[in-house]
């Protein structure tokens, strides 16, 4: 057997791959579920916090900044483990899934709040003044004038950050969630063959490469033309 054959036998073992493909697919489904929930909830919460912050109530803003900085400073894995083992709800069904979902949601909320906020504050004061001078309220100005411009500016950094955080779904394997990496790891320990890991890597590529390409496309399309 040549080295090349041995390499294929180890990492691209067809029998192993066929045997564990259903597991990996099932894991991919879980990954997609967590990722989808995290993206939707994280971005909505981040936007909500940025909007609250734009109202300009000093104590509220201090609280928002504190929460945001907290979740930006802590490693996501620490948050997951903390929620998984630390909160009294452990024992709840699918608690690992929920802990991962909550943790990554908070992290994305924190990072996206900062990005949304930067977008909102980058809109010139004259835009607010022109709109308010025609009788638009604060909220109407925010929704119709400021946000559409701000969101356009935020899309490139937001896409990159969202992808980076969503990849953190792999951390769920640590708290016994059967997502792609979790499934692959247990397959490896059952089969003594790393081929399932190869499948996991390919699975991640299939899931995330389109997102990365999509982000790149958005970035060029959203280049601001004045």
């Amino acid at each position: 057997m040549t080295n090349w054959d041995r390499f294929l036998e180890t990492f691209f073992n067809a029998k192993m791959m066929a045997r564990y493909l259903p597991d990996i697919l099932q894991g991919a489904l879980v990954t997609i579920q967590i990722a989808g929930l995290v993206i939707v909830c994280g971005l909505l919460l981040g936007l909500a916090l940025a909007l609250l912050r734009s109202i300009g109530l000093r104590p509220l803003n201090l609280l928002i900044v504190f929460v945001v900085d907290l979740f930006r400073a802590l490693p996501p894995l620490v948050i997951i483990v903390f929620i998984y083992f630390g909160l009294p709800a452990s024992g709840v069904k699918n608690w690992g899934f929920i802990a991962t979902w909550l943790s990554l949601t908070f992290v994305l909320m924190a990072f996206s709040e900062e990005i949304f906020w930067a977008g909102i504050t980058s809109i010139p004061k004259g835009q607010w003044e022109a709109a308010r001078s025609t009788g638009l309220s604060f909220g109407q100005t925010l929704i119709n004038v400021v946000l559409p411009q701000a969101l356009r500016l935020t899309i490139p950094p937001l896409t990159n950050r969202t992808i980076a955080i969503t990849k953190g779904t792999a951390l769920a394997s640590v708290v016994a969630v059967g997502e792609i990496l979790g499934m692959a790891s247990s397959a490896v320990s059952n089969s003594y063959n790393p081929s399932p890991l190869t499948m996991a890597a390919i699975g991640y590529l299939i899931l995330f490469l389109p997102l990365v390409v999509f982000g790149r496309w958005l970035e060029t399309r959203m280049a601001w033309k004045r």
Binding site: P124, G126, Q127, E129, A130, A131, R132, S133, T134, G135, V145, P148, Q149, R152, R226
Partner: peptide, 16 residues
């Protein structure tokens, strides 16, 4: 404010 129109030095049109 609808009764008071204002025009600014820097136009301040909504670019979008």
């Amino acid at each position: 404010r609808q009764r008071v129109g204002m025009v600014f030095q820097s136009f301040n049109l909504y670019p979008h």
